[in-house]
């Protein structure tokens, strides 16, 4: 019981803080929105010229990728908030109360998930205005959002672990910068692999966990429920989540005990 209540109150706190620092939300939305407005124009003819895009517009092809990109880069920032909470003494102040220990972490994770979903919704509305749509409609969108949030949760474990270990927001940010571009561009988020990328990159992208999730979300948007793709995406995400969140839990336990 106390776990539920405490998580709720700490979630509300984190969310309130987030909403009151709109500049943070603005900057993290800026990149995906620029991608959406600019790239869809820039590459519109390429999509028509290359059959590997599957004969859809670049907007239709790239929107799932941009949703994932947004989830990826926001999740890599979630460690910075816990670094602040530690370095400014908030965690210590929570720890001298009878608060459920796990709620400190769960409240944070719930806020991160909420943020990813809210940002995805904004991006999706914008994409719809530009002419994008989900063939699977509301059930597909819900499924896609679940995948996106789960994906964000899995990756946030990396930045949380780094944050809890180094207690340095700069390191967490730096890591986000280093990981984002190579992983994103060597995936099927923004372009197809076969028939577009050089061979070595096709190989890299076929191992890239981002590709799995993008493919599943893209299927939901363009084809329908392709259960094989959704299952492999879930499997890959679960694998990542197990490793990163176990590391986070380990680091977090060390601090609270």
């Amino acid at each position: 019981m106390s776990l539920l209540y405490d998580t709720w109150y700490l979630f509300v706190r984190a969310l309130t803080k987030l909403i009151r620092t709109p500049i943070l939300l603005f900057f993290s939305l800026l990149q995906p929105i620029i991608f959406l407005l600019l790239f869809t124009q820039l590459f519109s003819k390429i999509a028509a010229a290359f059959p590997s895009f599957g004969g859809v517009s670049y907007l239709a092809f790239a929107t799932p990728g941009i949703l994932l990109q947004n989830a990826f880069s926001s999740s890599l920032q979630s460690g910075t908030s816990i670094v602040d909470d530690l370095n400014l003494g908030y965690v210590q102040k929570f720890l001298v109360t009878p608060v459920n220990r796990s709620a400190i972490l769960l409240g944070r994770l719930c806020c991160d998930a909420f943020r990813v979903v809210a940002q995805s919704l904004i991006i999706l509305v914008l994409a719809y205005l530009l002419g994008f749509s989900f063939t699977t409609e509301v059930p597909g969108i819900l499924a896609a959002f679940f995948l996106i949030a789960y994906f964000g949760f899995a990756w946030s474990g990396i930045s949380l672990t780094i944050g809890l270990t180094t207690r340095s927001a700069e390191t967490v940010f730096g890591l986000g910068g280093i990981l984002t571009f190579p992983l994103l561009f060597m995936s099927t988020a923004l372009v197809p692999a076969k028939g577009f990328m050089p061979n070595w990159m096709v190989t890299v992208s076929s191992y890239n966990p981002i590709s799995y999730t993008v493919n599943a979300v893209r299927d939901l948007a363009l084809k329908g429920f392709v259960f094989g793709d959704i299952a492999s995406a879930l499997l890959v995400i679960t694998g990542i989540a197990l490793v990163t969140q176990a590391a986070t839990l380990y680091k977090f336990r060390k601090i609270v005990s």
Partner: peptide, 21 residues
């Protein structure tokens, strides 16, 4: 000094109370 600067005085107090059930 540990007070949450993004929260109001009352919110800081309420949170602390909530964490004490």
């Amino acid at each position: 000094t540990v007070v949450d600067l993004d929260l109001t005085a009352r919110e800081n107090m309420m949170l602390q109370g909530h964490l004490h059930q």
